[in-house]
């Protein structure tokens, strides 16, 4: 099963390398990893998506917790969360199909951020399902380039 871990770490050089190295040498699989500063500048938050059963995730969390620079590990898989990924996608868009693509963009509430002579760049945010749906809808037109971030997530309500 896929788990989402929110890991608070000291904003020190080498932290990311330590976390990534830990996963590599213990044989855990990272599906995605996003890291960035938090409201406290000395603390960064790493959002990790990891594949594994309960036992594996428990070990992952414990091993992360042992790291000197790790402050807290939260498994937020079963919590009510808001999740987002960012997608940039360059799609072939010759004049005859442009209108159709723009309608799809409208429906998914994405944005066109660049217009070329024969292509468009589309920016979208959303959860995994929405991102997948957008990609699927635009596939028939010919996707020339695609880049996406991993997922960031936040638990709903007061915490």
């Amino acid at each position: 099963m896929r788990h989402t871990l929110a890991v608070l770490v000291e904003n020190h050089p080498g932290v990311l390398s330590r976390v990534a190295g830990l996963f590599a040498r213990r044989g855990y699989n990272i599906e995605s990893l996003v890291v960035g500063e938090t409201e406290d500048k000395t603390v960064s938050r790493i959002t990790l998506v990891v594949e594994g059963d309960e036992k594996v995730i428990e070990q992952v969390s414990k091993q992360l917790n042992k790291q000197v620079d790790v402050i807290k590990v939260n498994d937020i898989t079963n919590e009510e969360t808001v999740e987002r990924q960012l997608l940039l996608l360059k799609v072939a868009a010759d004049p005859p199909v442009r209108q159709e693509i723009m309608q799809i963009v409208e429906i998914f509430r994405c944005r066109i951020v660049d217009i070329g002579r024969r292509s468009l760049i589309i920016e979208a945010t959303g959860d995994e399902e929405k991102i997948q749906a957008i990609i699927k809808s635009l596939q028939p037109f010919g996707i020339q380039e695609l880049v996406r971030t991993g997922k960031v997530a936040m638990v709903r309500g007061q915490k």
Binding site: S17, G21, R25, Q67, V68
Partner: peptide, 14 residues
């Protein structure tokens, strides 16, 4: 050496 010893120390500093 900080990088080299990362997996075999409790912690390493530069």
């Amino acid at each position: 050496i900080m990088g080299i010893t990362m997996p075999v120390t409790k912690h390493s500093y530069l």
